[in-house]
Structure formats: structure tokens, C-alpha cells
Design a protein around this nucleic acid. Sequence first.
DNA 1: AGTAGGACCTGGTGGC
DNA 2: TGCCACCAGGTCCTAC
Length: 274
Amino acid sequence: MPELPEVETLRRQLGAAVAGRAWTRVTARPSSLFRTPAREVAAALTGARLLTVTRRGKVLLFGFAGSRTLLVHLGMSGQVLLVPPAVPGERHRHLEAELDDGRVLVFRDPRRFGYLRLLADAGLADARELAGVGADPLDGARTWEAFAQAFRGRRGAAKAVLLQQGVLAGIGNVYADEILHAARVQPGRSAVTLTAVEVKELFHAIRDVLARAVDLGGTSFDEAFTDLYGRPGMYGASLKVYGRAGEPCLRCHTRLKGSTTGGRSSVFCPHCQK
DNA sequence: AGTAGGACCTGGTGGC
DNA sequence: TGCCACCAGGTCCTAC
């Protein structure tokens, strides 16, 4: 369930540890993950030097010399790992890139909900993977007024709007629940009914929750997410509602309620979330 | 334009 | 112990 904090954690680590390295040998095993044929990806990236690693919402962009960019979405079980050369391949390795320092960059994804796509930089502007990606919640220049305008233009439930990547990019099911609890807004509440004060509260909750989750290296459930070095994120201990249906609200001790809307599970406090 | 539902996929879990 | 139904999640698609 990599959402913004998990993807950002990886981006920072990749930028520090892998950017600047050439990919000396690339193995790509064909699977439904590859939106560019695996053979083509391997051929194009063998010998290529990775220059930058950036992020748009939940999408990682690996920028290579020669004006090519590899888009990587981790879906819900995707992992990017940096391992020593001798580590034998566990299952579900879709792409392995040997670096010019001998280490190996691994892309795993047991459930294969993610994707990889290689594009010429000129094609980035109209890549469908990025077309719906909106502003970044951690962009310090964003004001709550701009958020309010984007948020209140949508008709659906508050949670559904938070999950729309075009409003703010990078929020998934886990952090949406945490944000709504922090802002004291029920997930099913119609977005247009929020007062200006509530929208402002929501905006600050988005920032606070995501920034703190980034600081703690994201959230890990089982092995669904680990950082570049296989270590779990530490935000799990800070979760207030996700995974806690039936347990007491940490703010008011009311039993937290679970619900399902649009195929997504939600947990919220029926008392202190309005 | 919204909502709901299914599809994708596999590891883990709970029930019998 | 074994088997199976079911669930989780992000995104995309179709149907109302």
C-alpha cells in the first residue's frame, strides 16, 4: 500500500544512493507489469546512467541520460530494493538492474498491481500515467485556498475526493482515513458541505499526517512496504484509525466504526468526526 | 458528473 | 491437517 510517504521515502533514498550510477546489466522478466515490453526496457537501459529520481504523486520517475524516463508505480505490493550482488533472487522480481558499483536494484511486486513504463522525455507531457496527477500535498507553496477550490469543486464524499489524485496527488486509503480523523470529518460526508474552517482543518491535517509519515519512513503492513534497504516504516505505531475498527477512539474513547464505500474500507470515529 | 461494481493478482487468514 | 472462500489495496474500466 505504498502511498505518498512510502514513495517519498524511496525517492529520497534512491536519490542519495543510486542517482549517478550506471545500470550495467538489466534483467526484465516479462509480465503484466510492463507497459513497455520488458525486452525493450532491458535493451534501452543496459548501460544507461541514472541521473535523477523524482516523484509525481505515487509515481516514481527514474530519469536517465539520453532523455529517457522510467515510470514506476508500486501498486499495492511493489518494492524497490537495493541489495548486495550475492543476494539470491526471491520470488516476484520483475526487474533487476546491476549497478556500476556491483550492487543490484530490484523491483518486486507479488500482486502485480504496479506498472513500469519507459518513455522518451518528450512523451512525458502526454503520458496517461501522469495526466491525472494533481498538485503535491507537500508542496510548500500550495495554499489552503487553492486546496479549497480544488476540493470543493468535487461533489462526492470527502474521502472519495481525497482519493482523487487530481485534487491532491498521493493520498491512498490508509492516509485518507488518518487525515479525516485528524480533521474530525467523517469519510462519507459530502465534500461540498464542509465549511471553510473544516476545509482549512483538512488541509492542515493532510500536511501534518503526510509530513510526519515521511519523517518516520512511511507505514509497513507485513512486508507490503519496506524501504530501499528492506527496513519497515515506523509510522504504523502512529495510526489512529486504520486497522482499528471496533477499538476505542484515541481521542474520545468511542468505538471506532468500519464501513465500506465504493469498494473501499474506511474506519472512523462516529462521535468526534462530523 | 456522480456512484457502484468488477477486473486485475497473490499471500494471508478464518472457517469448516 | 487440508481445503476453500474471502479479503486487502490502486487504478482503470464499464454501466447505470
